[in-house]
Design a protein around this nucleic acid. Structure first.
Length: 465
DNA sequence: GGAACTCGCCAC
DNA sequence: AAACGTGGCGAGTTCC
Protein backbone atom coordinates (compact mmCIF):
# COMPACT_ATOMS: atom_id res chain seq x y z
CA UNK A 1 0.00 0.00 0.00
CA UNK A 2 2.81 2.34 0.85
CA UNK A 3 5.14 1.57 -2.02
CA UNK A 4 4.42 2.45 -5.59
CA UNK A 5 5.97 0.25 -8.22
CA UNK A 6 5.58 0.52 -11.96
CA UNK A 7 7.30 -0.75 -15.10
CA UNK A 8 9.92 1.83 -15.97
CA UNK A 9 11.22 0.33 -19.19
CA UNK A 10 9.43 -0.88 -22.29
CA UNK A 11 10.81 -4.38 -21.63
CA UNK A 12 9.25 -4.41 -18.18
CA UNK A 13 5.88 -3.39 -19.59
CA UNK A 14 6.12 -5.99 -22.36
CA UNK A 15 7.01 -8.75 -19.90
CA UNK A 16 3.84 -8.07 -17.93
CA UNK A 17 1.70 -7.69 -21.03
CA UNK A 18 2.86 -11.04 -22.37
CA UNK A 19 2.76 -12.49 -18.86
CA UNK A 20 -0.89 -11.66 -18.31
CA UNK A 21 -1.82 -13.34 -21.59
CA UNK A 22 0.25 -16.47 -20.90
CA UNK A 23 -1.15 -16.77 -17.36
CA UNK A 24 -4.69 -16.32 -18.69
CA UNK A 25 -4.16 -19.30 -20.99
CA UNK A 26 -3.04 -21.38 -18.00
CA UNK A 27 -6.08 -20.22 -16.03
CA UNK A 28 -8.36 -21.25 -18.89
CA UNK A 29 -6.70 -24.66 -19.01
CA UNK A 30 -6.97 -25.29 -15.25
CA UNK A 31 -6.32 -28.53 -13.38
CA UNK A 32 -8.46 -31.60 -12.96
CA UNK A 33 -9.84 -32.33 -9.50
CA UNK A 34 -11.10 -35.69 -8.25
CA UNK A 35 -14.47 -34.49 -6.96
CA UNK A 36 -15.47 -37.89 -5.63
CA UNK A 37 -12.24 -38.12 -3.64
CA UNK A 38 -12.74 -34.62 -2.21
CA UNK A 39 -16.23 -35.50 -1.00
CA UNK A 40 -15.08 -38.76 0.57
CA UNK A 41 -12.01 -37.22 2.20
CA UNK A 42 -14.14 -34.37 3.53
CA UNK A 43 -16.65 -36.80 5.07
CA UNK A 44 -13.83 -38.85 6.56
CA UNK A 45 -12.24 -35.75 8.08
CA UNK A 46 -15.58 -34.63 9.48
CA UNK A 47 -16.02 -37.95 11.31
CA UNK A 48 -12.47 -37.75 12.63
CA UNK A 49 -13.04 -34.15 13.78
CA UNK A 50 -16.25 -35.14 15.59
CA UNK A 51 -14.47 -37.99 17.39
CA UNK A 52 -11.74 -35.65 18.55
CA UNK A 53 -14.22 -33.02 19.67
CA UNK A 54 -15.93 -35.65 21.84
CA UNK A 55 -12.58 -36.57 23.33
CA UNK A 56 -12.03 -32.93 24.22
CA UNK A 57 -15.40 -32.67 25.97
CA UNK A 58 -14.08 -34.65 28.94
CA UNK A 59 -11.06 -32.46 29.53
CA UNK A 60 -10.63 -29.86 32.27
CA UNK A 61 -9.85 -27.16 29.74
CA UNK A 62 -13.10 -27.50 27.82
CA UNK A 63 -15.20 -27.90 30.98
CA UNK A 64 -13.93 -24.55 32.28
CA UNK A 65 -14.40 -23.05 28.84
CA UNK A 66 -17.98 -24.32 28.56
CA UNK A 67 -18.87 -23.09 32.06
CA UNK A 68 -17.76 -19.58 31.21
CA UNK A 69 -19.11 -19.15 27.69
CA UNK A 70 -22.10 -21.55 27.47
CA UNK A 71 -24.29 -19.86 24.90
CA UNK A 72 -21.44 -18.41 22.90
CA UNK A 73 -19.09 -21.35 23.31
CA UNK A 74 -17.10 -22.21 20.19
CA UNK A 75 -14.01 -24.38 19.86
CA UNK A 76 -12.51 -22.07 17.25
CA UNK A 77 -12.72 -19.01 19.48
CA UNK A 78 -9.16 -17.93 20.10
CA UNK A 79 -10.14 -15.06 22.41
CA UNK A 80 -12.17 -17.50 24.50
CA UNK A 81 -9.26 -19.93 24.61
CA UNK A 82 -6.87 -17.16 25.64
CA UNK A 83 -9.25 -16.11 28.45
CA UNK A 84 -9.52 -19.69 29.78
CA UNK A 85 -5.77 -20.34 29.68
CA UNK A 86 -4.37 -17.00 30.75
CA UNK A 87 -7.11 -15.45 32.89
CA UNK A 88 -9.03 -18.33 34.43
CA UNK A 89 -6.34 -21.03 34.69
CA UNK A 90 -3.61 -18.52 35.55
CA UNK A 91 -1.05 -19.71 32.99
CA UNK A 92 1.49 -17.04 32.02
CA UNK A 93 1.28 -16.52 28.25
CA UNK A 94 4.60 -17.65 26.71
CA UNK A 95 4.08 -15.16 23.85
CA UNK A 96 1.84 -12.23 23.00
CA UNK A 97 0.30 -11.07 19.72
CA UNK A 98 1.22 -7.71 18.28
CA UNK A 99 -1.85 -6.18 19.92
CA UNK A 100 -0.60 -7.39 23.30
CA UNK A 101 -2.98 -10.27 23.97
CA UNK A 102 -1.76 -13.76 24.96
CA UNK A 103 -1.02 -15.83 21.84
CA UNK A 104 -2.71 -19.14 21.18
CA UNK A 105 -0.81 -20.15 18.04
CA UNK A 106 0.90 -23.51 17.55
CA UNK A 107 4.32 -22.60 18.87
CA UNK A 108 2.85 -20.94 21.96
CA UNK A 109 0.41 -23.74 22.82
CA UNK A 110 3.19 -26.32 22.34
CA UNK A 111 5.07 -24.71 25.20
CA UNK A 112 2.18 -25.20 27.62
CA UNK A 113 2.10 -28.53 29.46
CA UNK A 114 -1.57 -29.44 29.03
CA UNK A 115 -2.31 -32.64 27.07
CA UNK A 116 -5.68 -31.48 25.70
CA UNK A 117 -3.93 -28.68 23.81
CA UNK A 118 -2.30 -31.33 21.62
CA UNK A 119 -5.76 -32.55 20.61
CA UNK A 120 -6.82 -28.97 19.93
CA UNK A 121 -3.83 -28.41 17.64
CA UNK A 122 -4.57 -31.63 15.77
CA UNK A 123 -8.18 -30.44 15.33
CA UNK A 124 -7.03 -27.11 13.91
CA UNK A 125 -4.89 -28.90 11.35
CA UNK A 126 -7.69 -31.20 10.19
CA UNK A 127 -10.14 -28.30 9.91
CA UNK A 128 -7.61 -26.34 7.87
CA UNK A 129 -7.26 -29.24 5.42
CA UNK A 130 -11.01 -29.71 5.15
CA UNK A 131 -12.29 -26.13 5.15
CA UNK A 132 -9.56 -24.26 3.29
CA UNK A 133 -8.36 -26.81 0.75
CA UNK A 134 -10.91 -29.58 0.06
CA UNK A 135 -13.87 -27.20 0.43
CA UNK A 136 -12.06 -24.64 -1.71
CA UNK A 137 -11.49 -27.14 -4.52
CA UNK A 138 -15.11 -28.30 -4.42
CA UNK A 139 -16.43 -24.74 -4.40
CA UNK A 140 -14.28 -23.59 -7.30
CA UNK A 141 -14.41 -26.64 -9.57
CA UNK A 142 -16.41 -26.52 -12.80
CA UNK A 143 -17.03 -29.93 -14.35
CA UNK A 144 -14.20 -31.34 -12.25
CA UNK A 145 -11.66 -28.65 -13.19
CA UNK A 146 -10.36 -25.79 -11.03
CA UNK A 147 -9.08 -22.62 -12.67
CA UNK A 148 -6.76 -20.88 -10.19
CA UNK A 149 -6.15 -17.22 -11.05
CA UNK A 150 -2.62 -15.79 -11.17
CA UNK A 151 -2.58 -12.04 -10.53
CA UNK A 152 0.18 -9.64 -11.52
CA UNK A 153 -1.55 -6.52 -10.21
CA UNK A 154 -1.53 -7.17 -6.46
CA UNK A 155 1.84 -7.70 -4.74
CA UNK A 156 3.80 -4.57 -3.89
CA UNK A 157 6.93 -6.33 -5.17
CA UNK A 158 5.56 -7.10 -8.65
CA UNK A 159 5.53 -10.75 -7.84
CA UNK A 160 2.32 -12.71 -8.48
CA UNK A 161 -0.50 -13.88 -6.25
CA UNK A 162 -3.08 -16.61 -6.78
CA UNK A 163 -6.71 -17.02 -5.75
CA UNK A 164 -10.01 -18.87 -6.33
CA UNK A 165 -8.48 -21.15 -5.26
CA UNK A 166 -5.00 -20.08 -4.23
CA UNK A 167 -2.71 -22.55 -6.00
CA UNK A 168 0.40 -21.16 -4.33
CA UNK A 169 -0.13 -22.34 -0.75
CA UNK A 170 -1.14 -26.00 -0.96
CA UNK A 171 0.50 -27.89 1.94
CA UNK A 172 3.88 -29.43 1.27
CA UNK A 173 5.82 -29.76 4.54
CA UNK A 174 3.41 -31.59 6.84
CA UNK A 175 3.07 -35.15 5.55
CA UNK A 176 -0.63 -35.69 6.30
CA UNK A 177 -1.71 -32.24 5.04
CA UNK A 178 0.32 -32.69 1.86
CA UNK A 179 -1.02 -36.16 1.15
CA UNK A 180 -4.69 -35.40 1.75
CA UNK A 181 -4.78 -32.14 -0.23
CA UNK A 182 -2.53 -32.99 -3.16
CA UNK A 183 -4.30 -36.29 -3.76
CA UNK A 184 -7.18 -34.22 -5.11
CA UNK A 185 -5.22 -32.69 -7.99
CA UNK A 186 -4.79 -34.59 -11.27
CA UNK A 187 -3.52 -34.06 -14.81
CA UNK A 188 -5.76 -34.60 -17.80
CA UNK A 189 -6.28 -38.26 -18.78
CA UNK A 190 -3.16 -39.83 -20.22
CA UNK A 191 -1.06 -36.92 -18.94
CA UNK A 192 1.30 -36.39 -16.01
CA UNK A 193 2.11 -33.40 -13.81
CA UNK A 194 5.63 -31.96 -13.97
CA UNK A 195 6.96 -29.31 -11.58
CA UNK A 196 10.19 -27.48 -12.35
CA UNK A 197 11.67 -25.09 -9.80
CA UNK A 198 14.74 -22.85 -9.79
CA UNK A 199 17.25 -23.74 -7.07
CA UNK A 200 17.94 -20.88 -4.66
CA UNK A 201 16.55 -18.31 -7.11
CA UNK A 202 16.30 -15.33 -4.75
CA UNK A 203 19.80 -15.87 -3.40
CA UNK A 204 21.14 -15.97 -6.98
CA UNK A 205 19.23 -12.86 -8.05
CA UNK A 206 20.39 -10.99 -4.94
CA UNK A 207 23.95 -11.83 -6.00
CA UNK A 208 23.31 -10.15 -9.37
CA UNK A 209 22.74 -6.92 -7.44
CA UNK A 210 25.50 -7.03 -4.79
CA UNK A 211 28.12 -9.22 -6.61
CA UNK A 212 29.68 -10.28 -3.30
CA UNK A 213 32.78 -12.36 -4.16
CA UNK A 214 32.25 -14.93 -1.39
CA UNK A 215 28.64 -15.40 -2.40
CA UNK A 216 29.67 -15.72 -6.05
CA UNK A 217 32.10 -18.46 -5.07
CA UNK A 218 29.31 -20.37 -3.34
CA UNK A 219 27.11 -19.99 -6.41
CA UNK A 220 29.75 -20.90 -9.00
CA UNK A 221 31.61 -23.70 -7.21
CA UNK A 222 29.44 -26.80 -6.68
CA UNK A 223 31.94 -28.25 -4.20
CA UNK A 224 31.12 -25.43 -1.75
CA UNK A 225 28.08 -25.44 0.54
CA UNK A 226 26.93 -22.18 2.13
CA UNK A 227 24.31 -23.75 4.38
CA UNK A 228 26.71 -26.51 5.44
CA UNK A 229 29.33 -23.90 6.35
CA UNK A 230 26.77 -21.93 8.34
CA UNK A 231 25.51 -25.07 10.15
CA UNK A 232 29.11 -25.84 11.06
CA UNK A 233 29.62 -22.37 12.51
CA UNK A 234 26.23 -22.05 14.26
CA UNK A 235 26.39 -25.46 15.94
CA UNK A 236 30.18 -25.46 16.42
CA UNK A 237 30.82 -28.68 14.50
CA UNK A 238 34.49 -29.44 13.74
CA UNK A 239 33.53 -30.46 10.20
CA UNK A 240 30.32 -30.74 8.18
CA UNK A 241 29.63 -33.43 5.59
CA UNK A 242 26.64 -32.74 3.38
CA UNK A 243 26.35 -36.45 2.54
CA UNK A 244 25.82 -37.41 6.19
CA UNK A 245 22.03 -37.78 6.36
CA UNK A 246 21.87 -37.37 10.16
CA UNK A 247 23.22 -33.85 9.81
CA UNK A 248 20.64 -32.69 7.26
CA UNK A 249 18.29 -31.39 9.94
CA UNK A 250 21.02 -29.08 11.28
CA UNK A 251 21.72 -27.77 7.78
CA UNK A 252 17.98 -27.14 7.32
CA UNK A 253 17.81 -25.43 10.71
CA UNK A 254 20.65 -23.10 9.81
CA UNK A 255 19.19 -22.37 6.36
CA UNK A 256 15.61 -21.71 7.50
CA UNK A 257 16.33 -20.47 11.02
CA UNK A 258 19.27 -18.17 10.35
CA UNK A 259 20.47 -17.60 6.78
CA UNK A 260 17.15 -16.86 5.04
CA UNK A 261 15.76 -14.71 7.88
CA UNK A 262 19.05 -12.76 7.86
CA UNK A 263 18.70 -12.17 4.12
CA UNK A 264 15.19 -10.79 4.70
CA UNK A 265 16.52 -8.40 7.34
CA UNK A 266 16.01 -10.32 10.58
CA UNK A 267 18.54 -10.29 13.44
CA UNK A 268 20.12 -12.84 15.79
CA UNK A 269 17.74 -12.07 18.67
CA UNK A 270 14.87 -13.58 16.70
CA UNK A 271 16.95 -16.35 15.17
CA UNK A 272 17.70 -18.00 18.54
CA UNK A 273 14.09 -19.00 19.04
CA UNK A 274 13.68 -20.51 15.58
CA UNK A 275 16.95 -22.41 15.75
CA UNK A 276 16.20 -23.82 19.22
CA UNK A 277 12.71 -24.91 18.21
CA UNK A 278 14.20 -26.61 15.17
CA UNK A 279 16.76 -28.63 17.12
CA UNK A 280 14.43 -29.07 20.13
CA UNK A 281 16.43 -27.20 22.74
CA UNK A 282 14.46 -25.36 25.47
CA UNK A 283 14.87 -21.86 26.88
CA UNK A 284 16.92 -21.64 30.07
CA UNK A 285 19.74 -23.94 31.16
CA UNK A 286 20.43 -27.07 29.11
CA UNK A 287 20.96 -30.56 30.57
CA UNK A 288 22.68 -33.65 29.19
CA UNK A 289 20.57 -35.54 26.64
CA UNK A 290 18.56 -32.50 25.51
CA UNK A 291 17.92 -31.72 21.85
CA UNK A 292 18.03 -33.76 18.65
CA UNK A 293 20.41 -36.74 18.45
CA UNK A 294 23.67 -36.51 16.54
CA UNK A 295 24.74 -39.25 14.11
CA UNK A 296 27.87 -40.06 16.13
CA UNK A 297 25.92 -40.50 19.41
CA UNK A 298 24.83 -37.97 22.03
CA UNK A 299 22.62 -34.96 21.32
CA UNK A 300 23.08 -31.44 19.98
CA UNK A 301 22.58 -30.24 23.58
CA UNK A 302 25.45 -32.43 24.83
CA UNK A 303 27.62 -31.18 21.98
CA UNK A 304 26.96 -27.48 22.57
CA UNK A 305 27.49 -27.88 26.34
CA UNK A 306 30.88 -29.50 25.59
CA UNK A 307 31.70 -26.40 23.53
CA UNK A 308 30.89 -24.10 26.45
CA UNK A 309 27.37 -23.12 25.33
CA UNK A 310 25.29 -24.32 28.25
CA UNK A 311 22.23 -22.06 28.12
CA UNK A 312 19.83 -20.44 25.71
CA UNK A 313 21.31 -17.05 26.65
CA UNK A 314 24.84 -18.23 25.85
CA UNK A 315 23.61 -19.55 22.50
CA UNK A 316 22.08 -16.14 21.80
CA UNK A 317 25.42 -14.46 22.57
CA UNK A 318 27.13 -16.92 20.22
CA UNK A 319 24.63 -16.11 17.45
CA UNK A 320 25.38 -12.43 17.87
CA UNK A 321 28.99 -13.21 16.97
CA UNK A 322 27.87 -15.42 14.08
CA UNK A 323 25.78 -12.53 12.73
CA UNK A 324 28.67 -10.08 13.07
CA UNK A 325 30.90 -12.51 11.19
CA UNK A 326 28.18 -13.13 8.60
CA UNK A 327 27.90 -9.49 7.52
CA UNK A 328 31.29 -8.25 8.70
CA UNK A 329 33.55 -10.93 7.17
CA UNK A 330 31.70 -13.56 5.15
CA UNK A 331 29.48 -11.28 3.05
CA UNK A 332 30.98 -7.79 3.46
CA UNK A 333 30.25 -6.64 -0.05
CA UNK A 334 26.64 -7.79 0.26
CA UNK A 335 26.39 -5.71 3.45
CA UNK A 336 27.92 -2.66 1.75
CA UNK A 337 25.49 -3.05 -1.15
CA UNK A 338 22.54 -3.01 1.25
CA UNK A 339 23.78 0.22 2.85
CA UNK A 340 24.47 1.82 -0.52
CA UNK A 341 21.11 0.67 -1.90
CA UNK A 342 19.22 2.22 1.03
CA UNK A 343 21.19 5.48 0.79
CA UNK A 344 20.42 5.62 -2.89
CA UNK A 345 16.71 5.29 -2.08
CA UNK A 346 16.96 8.07 0.50
CA UNK A 347 18.68 10.30 -2.05
CA UNK A 348 16.49 9.60 -5.10
CA UNK A 349 13.22 8.49 -3.54
CA UNK A 350 13.19 5.30 -5.60
CA UNK A 351 15.19 2.23 -6.58
CA UNK A 352 15.07 0.42 -9.94
CA UNK A 353 14.97 -3.38 -10.23
CA UNK A 354 17.24 -5.21 -12.67
CA UNK A 355 14.10 -6.10 -14.62
CA UNK A 356 13.13 -2.48 -15.20
CA UNK A 357 10.58 -1.83 -12.45
CA UNK A 358 10.79 1.31 -10.35
CA UNK A 359 9.97 1.06 -6.63
CA UNK A 360 9.06 4.42 -5.08
CA UNK A 361 6.88 5.75 -2.27
CA UNK A 362 7.34 5.26 1.45
CA UNK A 363 9.38 2.14 2.17
CA UNK A 364 11.33 1.01 5.20
CA UNK A 365 14.88 -0.35 5.06
CA UNK A 366 13.95 -4.01 4.61
CA UNK A 367 11.40 -3.24 1.92
CA UNK A 368 13.90 -1.20 -0.09
CA UNK A 369 16.32 -4.14 -0.01
CA UNK A 370 13.82 -6.95 -0.53
CA UNK A 371 11.38 -5.68 -3.16
CA UNK A 372 13.79 -5.45 -6.10
CA UNK A 373 15.22 -8.89 -5.31
CA UNK A 374 11.90 -10.62 -4.81
CA UNK A 375 10.38 -9.00 -7.87
CA UNK A 376 13.29 -9.68 -10.22
CA UNK A 377 13.47 -13.31 -9.09
CA UNK A 378 9.83 -13.81 -10.00
CA UNK A 379 10.34 -12.01 -13.31
CA UNK A 380 12.87 -14.70 -14.26
CA UNK A 381 10.19 -17.31 -13.76
CA UNK A 382 7.64 -15.22 -15.64
CA UNK A 383 9.97 -14.75 -18.61
CA UNK A 384 10.35 -18.55 -18.85
CA UNK A 385 6.60 -18.99 -18.51
CA UNK A 386 5.96 -16.61 -21.40
CA UNK A 387 8.61 -18.21 -23.58
CA UNK A 388 7.43 -21.78 -22.94
CA UNK A 389 3.84 -20.72 -23.56
CA UNK A 390 4.93 -19.28 -26.90
CA UNK A 391 6.89 -22.42 -27.88
CA UNK A 392 4.08 -24.76 -26.84
CA UNK A 393 1.63 -22.97 -29.12
CA UNK A 394 4.05 -22.58 -31.98
CA UNK A 395 4.92 -26.28 -31.88
CA UNK A 396 1.31 -27.28 -31.13
CA UNK A 397 2.10 -29.25 -27.98
CA UNK A 398 -0.64 -31.23 -26.29
CA UNK A 399 1.27 -30.39 -23.11
CA UNK A 400 0.05 -27.26 -21.30
CA UNK A 401 1.45 -24.88 -18.73
CA UNK A 402 -1.13 -24.89 -15.94
CA UNK A 403 0.38 -22.90 -13.10
CA UNK A 404 3.25 -21.20 -11.37
CA UNK A 405 4.45 -20.88 -7.76
CA UNK A 406 6.86 -17.90 -7.69
CA UNK A 407 9.97 -19.89 -8.65
CA UNK A 408 8.33 -23.01 -10.08
CA UNK A 409 6.46 -23.97 -13.26
CA UNK A 410 3.70 -26.58 -13.27
CA UNK A 411 3.00 -28.39 -16.53
CA UNK A 412 0.35 -30.90 -17.51
CA UNK A 413 2.49 -33.08 -19.78
CA UNK A 414 1.25 -35.38 -22.55
CA UNK A 415 3.38 -38.45 -21.83
CA UNK A 416 4.64 -38.94 -25.37
CA UNK A 417 5.98 -35.37 -25.26
CA UNK A 418 7.82 -35.71 -21.94
CA UNK A 419 11.34 -35.80 -23.32
CA UNK A 420 10.77 -32.92 -25.73
CA UNK A 421 9.11 -30.82 -23.04
CA UNK A 422 11.92 -31.49 -20.54
CA UNK A 423 14.50 -30.40 -23.07
CA UNK A 424 12.65 -27.19 -23.88
CA UNK A 425 12.10 -26.33 -20.21
CA UNK A 426 15.73 -27.05 -19.43
CA UNK A 427 16.98 -24.91 -22.28
CA UNK A 428 14.71 -21.96 -21.59
CA UNK A 429 15.38 -21.85 -17.84
CA UNK A 430 19.13 -22.50 -17.79
CA UNK A 431 20.28 -20.98 -21.11
CA UNK A 432 17.81 -18.76 -22.98
CA UNK A 433 16.86 -16.67 -19.95
CA UNK A 434 20.44 -15.70 -19.11
CA UNK A 435 21.06 -14.95 -22.77
CA UNK A 436 18.07 -12.61 -22.90
CA UNK A 437 19.06 -10.84 -19.68
CA UNK A 438 22.81 -10.20 -19.51
CA UNK A 439 22.56 -8.87 -15.94
CA UNK A 440 22.15 -12.49 -14.84
CA UNK A 441 25.79 -13.13 -13.93
CA UNK A 442 25.38 -16.37 -11.97
CA UNK A 443 24.45 -19.83 -13.26
CA UNK A 444 20.76 -20.64 -12.73
CA UNK A 445 19.84 -24.28 -12.24
CA UNK A 446 16.54 -26.11 -11.91
CA UNK A 447 15.23 -29.23 -10.20
CA UNK A 448 12.21 -31.21 -11.31
CA UNK A 449 9.56 -33.52 -9.92
CA UNK A 450 7.28 -35.72 -11.97
CA UNK A 451 4.08 -37.64 -11.22
CA UNK A 452 3.09 -40.86 -12.96
CA UNK A 453 0.59 -40.94 -15.83
CA UNK A 454 -2.93 -40.35 -14.45
CA UNK A 455 -1.46 -39.98 -10.94
CA UNK A 456 -2.23 -37.19 -8.48
CA UNK A 457 0.05 -34.33 -7.47
CA UNK A 458 0.74 -36.18 -4.20
CA UNK A 459 2.76 -38.82 -6.04
CA UNK A 460 5.52 -36.63 -7.41
CA UNK A 461 9.02 -38.10 -7.53
CA UNK A 462 12.27 -36.34 -8.16
CA UNK A 463 13.01 -36.34 -11.90
CA UNK A 464 16.26 -35.82 -13.79
CA UNK A 465 15.52 -33.60 -16.79
C1' DG B 1 -26.52 -8.34 7.17
C1' DG B 2 -22.25 -6.88 5.37
C1' DA B 3 -17.63 -4.45 5.94
C1' DA B 4 -13.51 -4.32 8.45
C1' DC B 5 -10.87 -6.11 11.74
C1' DT B 6 -7.66 -9.77 14.42
C1' DC B 7 -5.64 -14.04 14.58
C1' DG B 8 -3.89 -18.19 12.87
C1' DC B 9 -1.73 -20.88 9.17
C1' DC B 10 -0.69 -22.44 4.39
C1' DA B 11 2.96 -21.28 0.48
C1' DC B 12 7.48 -18.99 -1.55
C1' DA C 1 19.15 2.15 15.84
C1' DA C 2 16.21 -1.48 14.96
C1' DA C 3 15.20 -5.76 13.75
C1' DC C 4 11.37 -11.16 8.77
C1' DG C 5 9.91 -9.83 2.81
C1' DT C 6 5.31 -11.25 -0.22
C1' DG C 7 0.63 -13.20 -0.57
C1' DG C 8 -4.82 -15.85 0.36
C1' DC C 9 -8.18 -17.30 3.19
C1' DG C 10 -11.04 -19.36 7.20
C1' DA C 11 -13.13 -18.52 11.85
C1' DG C 12 -14.54 -15.38 14.90
C1' DT C 13 -15.67 -10.73 16.39
C1' DT C 14 -17.07 -5.91 16.28
C1' DC C 15 -19.05 -2.06 14.22
C1' DC C 16 -22.45 0.33 11.54
Amino acid sequence: MKANIHPKTKEAYQLFHAGVLALARAEEQGMRIDVDYCLKAKAHLTRKIQRMERKLEDTELVKVWWERFRAGFTLGGNDQLAWVLYTKMGITPPNTTKTGKGSVDTSTLSQIDLPELQILLQLRKLKKIRDTYLEGFLREQVDGVIHPFFNLNIPATFRSSSDHPNFQNIPKRDKESRQVTRQAIFPRHGHQLLEVDFSGLEVSIAACYHKDPNMLKYLFDPTTDMHGDMAKQIFKFSHFDRQESGLKVFRDASKNGFVFPQFYGDYYGNNVKGLCTWVELPEGRWKAGMGLPLPGGGTIGDHLISKGIKTYKQFEAHLKLVQEDFWGNRFVKYYQWKEHWYKQYQRQGYVDSLTGFRCSGVMNHNEVINYPIQGAAFHCLLWCFVELDRISREQEWRTRLVGQIHDALILDVYSAELEMVSEAVSRVTTKDLAQAWPWIIVPLSVGAELCGVDCSWAEKQSYQM
